[in-house]
């Protein structure tokens, strides 16, 4: 079983995902979306999950929030085991402190409900606030925090721009003061300048409230900006995990390197680095054979015993 720097005895750990497998059986074919995923998220930390589409990023988020039922493995939140819970009610009860921000701010808000209603509903589901007045106060606070004037609570989602709607989506996640927010590609649908606003806001919120954030994205520069630690996913496998500095300054896995090299540089003269073209079939790496190897106390890579010296040795770097 892979072990990824998880210090489960540590009070500081908020969420532990251990050896999580998520397989989907469709039309006689088994799709392995997540393969033996292990990581943890500490209190107040932003953990970034990066990978291309189809790498299983969203599946992991959905498993945590209970939208997918994992095939095997365990998810421990606040010391409580979440996998195996049969009743939906109990699951909601135990994951009350986990909230989610979705990718598309157009489809994730009910167009027939006022913004205030949408947020109050989130509070009601989480059993927070005893009176309407108390809930209204929390709603006003959450809206103000995301930069939407509280008096707009009576408006409908259609009256807001895409960026504003995503702010409302964030307010809905925030309103119950959760311990963990899962943000799944929450800026992918927005313009660059609006992306910057939202990402700045997420970082400020995290600093003010101490919420942990699982930031799922394919945008490496944004992941770098927000995250304290990063996990790199490919084809359902977590390949490398480390602090943001370690992943960006000292990537070990050839896939991580190819991902970093592919980021278009904002410079008309520089060609992007072409040396690190990565193709799983020609690279000859079988992820299934890999074991976790420690590069440092906080930095690990999935590889075989012979790959490890090759990748970390002088010839590989």
């Amino acid at each position: 079983m892979p072990k990824v720097n998880s210090d489960q005895n540590n009070d500081n750990t908020l969420l532990t995902v251990n050896d999580l497998c998520m397989y989907f059986d469709t039309a006689g074919k088994r799709v392995k979306a997540s393969e033996h995923i292990s990581f943890d998220i500490r209190r107040g930390e932003t953990f970034g999950l990066v990978g291309e589409s189809g790498s299983g990023k969203s599946t992991i988020g959905k498993c945590i929030i209970g939208l997918n039922r994992p095939t095997s493995g365990s998810i421990i939140f606040e010391g409580q085991e979440l996998t195996g819970i049969k009743s939906k009610k109990e699951y909601i009860e135990k994951t009350r402190d986990i909230q989610m921000i979705f990718q598309d701010p157009m489809s994730s808000l009910n167009p027939k409900k006022q913004v205030g209603q949408i947020l109050r509903e989130a509070l009601a589901i989480q059993n927070i606030g005893s009176s309407r007045a108390e809930r209204d106060k929390l709603v006003a606070q959450a809206l103000t925090r995301v930069g939407i004037p509280a008096e707009y609570a009576g408006r409908y989602p259609s009256g807001f721009s895409g960026g504003q709607r995503q702010r409302i989506g964030i307010a809905r996640a925030l309103v119950g003061n959760p311990k963990l927010i899962i943000a799944d590609e929450c800026i992918a649908a927005l313009d660059a300048s609006v992306q910057a606003q939202i990402v700045n806001m997420l970082r400020n919120i995290k600093q003010e409230t101490g919420t942990s954030l699982l930031f799922i994205s394919h945008d490496l520069s944004m992941v770098r900006f927000l995250s304290d630690r990063i996990g790199v996913l490919h084809l359902g496998y977590l390949l490398e995990i480390g602090s943001t500095e370690e992943i960006f300054n000292d990537p070990i896995h050839p896939y991580t390197r190819s991902l970093l090299a592919a980021i278009p540089r904002i410079n008309p003269v520089m060609p992007s680095e072409q040396t690190d073209k990565y193709d799983i079939s020609s690279a000859g790496i079988d992820y299934g054979l890999g074991k976790w190897h420690e590069v440092s106390a906080s930095h690990s890579v999935l590889c075989t015993d012979s790959e490890f010296p090759e990748w970390t040795g002088s010839e590989g770097r």
Partner: peptide, 18 residues
């Protein structure tokens, strides 16, 4: 503004420009 809003791939962790 557009150029400034592009996140830089450096160690800088200051506020992104928008």
């Amino acid at each position: 503004g557009l150029l400034s809003a592009v996140p830089e791939l450096s160690d800088s962790k200051q506020e992104l420009y928008s």
